[in-house]
């Protein structure tokens, strides 16, 4: 074997080992976090940790239910706003907008996705929080004085502000995935429906969405998982003091990622504290991986059909 062939063979082995590394990276992260979460799992039952709302590290109580519910609450608000907006936007881009104009929209969507989370946070503090505090909350709690619109937190730093900022952050991902999914529905399919006298909207409703819905669900799943993990922006606007149970969109919310970010610094000094925080990271990892496997799985599958 000459040296050129030899080099090629070596390079192939090396490249392959990098691939193996990337294939196992998710497991590696999971394994390492699990090793660190073990101490707390050794003394406390996982379900108890997940279902208890008592978080008092100094007395050894690490119930995470409040944070988990906080995550779900903020995500729910974000999804509630972002899903319809993203679906309608991607439909408008793919069904109504002329191709030439459409070309300009993709870079803008990408830019929206590329802005730093901190910038979203700053924007939230400057624009969203005051808007919620001065307009939205007075208006809603006056006109709809019942769940989930009443709260005694008048600061504007609340679940709703977090949800709004998150909604804007996860929309670009959903819009671009949905755009791809809708683009895969053939022109002839739409033409057939229109030729039968359907309006554009009927064509969308009965044919395009019918073909595209698995992909749209996948986009939503990916969006949700993105919302679960977002940290800094939410930390900056959601108020972040613990709620046992979300009672209002105007209450503060304290999601898991914010907990992880916030406890840095204090966590080394209290026994089991670091272990419980890394358990939180592990939970986040497992949930987002699961969501991503489902989301991408659906997309890959419908791509191959």
């Amino acid at each position: 074997m000459n040296t050129r062939k030899f080099k090629d063979a070596i390079a192939k082995k090396i490249m392959f080992s990098f691939c193996v590394f990337i294939l196992s990276l998710a497991f590696l992260i999971g394994f390492i976090l699990y090793q660190k979460a073990k101490p707390i799992l050794g003394v406390q039952n996982l379900w108890q940790l997940l279902l208890s709302g008592k978080w008092h590290p100094t007395t050894g109580q690490f119930g995470m239910a409040g944070f988990i519910l906080g995550t779900l609450w903020v995500t729910l608000i974000a999804v509630f706003i972002a899903v319809p907006v993203s679906i309608l936007t991607s439909l408008y881009l793919s069904e109504y907008m002329p191709k030439r104009v459409k070309e300009f929209t993709k870079p803008v969507i990408d830019l929206l996705a590329g802005i730093s989370p901190v910038i979203y946070g700053v924007w939230g503090v400057i624009a969203v929080v005051p808007f919620v505090r001065d307009y939205l909350m007075p208006f809603l709690s006056e006109n709809l004085p019942f769940f989930p619109f009443v709260s005694d937190n008048y600061t504007g730093f609340c679940a709703l502000s977090g949800g709004i900022v998150l909604a804007i952050m996860i929309s670009p991902l959903m819009v671009s995935v949905m755009g791809e999914v809708l683009g895969a529905v053939s022109f002839e399919m739409r033409e057939t429906s229109l030729a039968l006298g359907a309006t554009r909207w009927q064509t969308i409703k009965f044919v395009v969405l019918k073909k595209a819905w698995p992909g749209i669900i996948a986009a939503i799943i990916l969006g949700i998982s993105r919302a679960f993990g977002e940290t800094i922006a939410v930390l900056m606007v959601a108020g972040c003091s613990i709620q046992e149970f979300p009672k209002s969109i105007f209450d503060t919310a304290y999601p898991l990622p914010a907990l992880i970010a916030n406890t840095y610094g204090e966590m080394m000094s209290i026994p089991l504290y670091d272990s419980s925080v890394l358990l939180a990271a592990l939970i986040l990892l497992v949930v987002t991986i699961l969501f991503n496997i489902i989301g991408w799985g659906i997309l890959f599958k419908s791509e191959n059909e």
Partner: peptide
């Protein structure tokens, strides 16, 4: 368009049942 039925080169069935295809229009 309702006044004219169109048959294309390659048949384009809509992504639904046989019945719903006919009942579509």
């Amino acid at each position: 368009r309702k006044k004219m039925g169109l048959l294309s080169q390659r048949p384009q069935v809509l992504p639904m049942s046989i019945y719903d295809n006919v009942a579509y229009s």
